[in-house]
Computed example of a mutant assay.
Amino acid sequence: MTTTPDILCIGSVLWDVIGRAASHMRVGSDVPGRITRLPGGVAMNIAMTLRRFGMTPALLTAIGRDAEGDDLMAEAARMGMVCDHIYRSDDLPTDVYMAIEGANGLIAAIADAHSLEAAGQKILTPLADGKLGSDAAPFHGPVALDGNLTEELLQDIAKSPLFARADLRVAPASPGKAERLLALLGHPSATFYVNLEEAGLLCQTRFDDSAVAAAALIARGAHRVLVTDGGNSASEGTAGDIITQTPPAVMVTRVTGAGDTFMAAHIASEAHGVDRAAALTRALNAAATYVSGETPL
């Protein structure tokens, strides 16, 4: 029997291949460290944190029918995610993300989400064929969208009746893909989760603090925004109503997935009825704990 999900996570589900070193690194560095392969991708990272908060996410993504894809499906099912609606491709390989991290943070990363992009609308089929919804009875509940989807698909989602009743929670996959989200800026139920750099890209400028960035995004048409700035203050709000908090200071041991952890913790907090100030606090605490290395991957 198929489990009913609390939330849909739509976007990249792939393998993260992460090399971490304890030393500071620069371009050309060759240092000892550890290399791990773990389930990742924005949608998967969000889903993993949602599970830790007691929610049951369903994944809508593309995963290849290869050995890597079979392993990834098995791992997602083991963690308690609903995998019944994942599009499995016979001719597209399972996507992968590769990153190098040093003591001074992320050095470089490459996200190969070409299979997700190629699958396009196919990953949304369960929202139209009655399994999760239809045009006449669209899915009603929270939906986490990530910027690894193509700009064309995000434009379709912005005007699709399949998302007319959804509580959209939107995040860029990276600063390099932030501008893909412009299509959703005017959506009446979309909440944007961006960092300071991504906010600047969406507004075609640079910001010095999260509150100014949040106000600018709202002025550009965003319904609701959350803007983070690493260890500096983060802001959440809608038009004329912005709150700002400072995250706890911690020793940073990892950065990949921190923004996804923040977003998922915030979504789960609100799903459990926590007020907006407390939800922002819980999300900042969860992200700080994550980057300190205290939360299991």
Rank of each mutant, 00 (worst) to 15 (best):
R276W: 09
G120T: 08
G147Y: 01
T253Q: 13
V13Y: 01
G186L: 01
K159A: 12
A264T: 03
A183W: 00
E179M: 15
T261W: 02
M1K: 07
L72Q: 09
L153K: 03
L149A: 03
L14T: 15
A171T: 15
T56E: 12
T61A: 15
H24A: 13
W15R: 08
P32H: 06
A199Q: 05
A265R: 05
E101I: 12
V252I: 14
L153A: 03
F262S: 02
A239I: 07
D84T: 01
T2V: 14
I86E: 07
I123H: 03
D229V: 06
P32V: 02
D16W: 02
H85D: 13
C203G: 10
A271K: 11
A74F: 03
E68F: 14
G273W: 06
I218E: 04
L217A: 00
L116M: 05
G102S: 13
L182A: 14
T3W: 04
I18N: 12
H24P: 10
G186V: 00
A279K: 11
A211H: 08
R52M: 08
A271T: 12
S23R: 13
I35P: 01
A43Y: 00
P248V: 07
T295D: 11
D6M: 10
A268K: 05
A287Y: 10
A278E: 14
L226Q: 10
D209T: 00
T61N: 01
T228V: 00
M44E: 09
S235M: 08
P296S: 08
R165N: 10
P142L: 02
T150I: 07
G105I: 01
V96Y: 05
M81W: 12
E294C: 09
D229W: 08
N195F: 14
F53H: 15
V42Q: 14
D167Q: 14
P57S: 13
L297K: 06
T289I: 11
P57R: 13
L72Y: 09
S29Q: 03
R26F: 11
A103P: 00
S235Q: 07
E152F: 04
N104Q: 02
D209G: 02
V13A: 08
S174R: 06
G237D: 12
G230F: 04
S292W: 01
S269A: 15
Y97T: 05
L162M: 09
T150A: 06
T4F: 07
R34H: 12
V82S: 05
K177G: 02
M79S: 11
V274M: 13
A264N: 04
D84G: 00
A258M: 02
I100V: 15
Y97N: 07
H266V: 04
A171I: 10
F262V: 02
L196V: 01
V274D: 08
H272R: 15
A213E: 03
A74M: 06
K177I: 01
F163R: 02
R282N: 15
G186E: 05
T61M: 00
S115C: 05
L116S: 06
T205P: 03
G200K: 06
G231Y: 07
A119E: 01
A113S: 11
L284K: 09
R220T: 11
L162E: 07
A158W: 06
T3I: 12
E270T: 15
T244Y: 03
E197V: 15
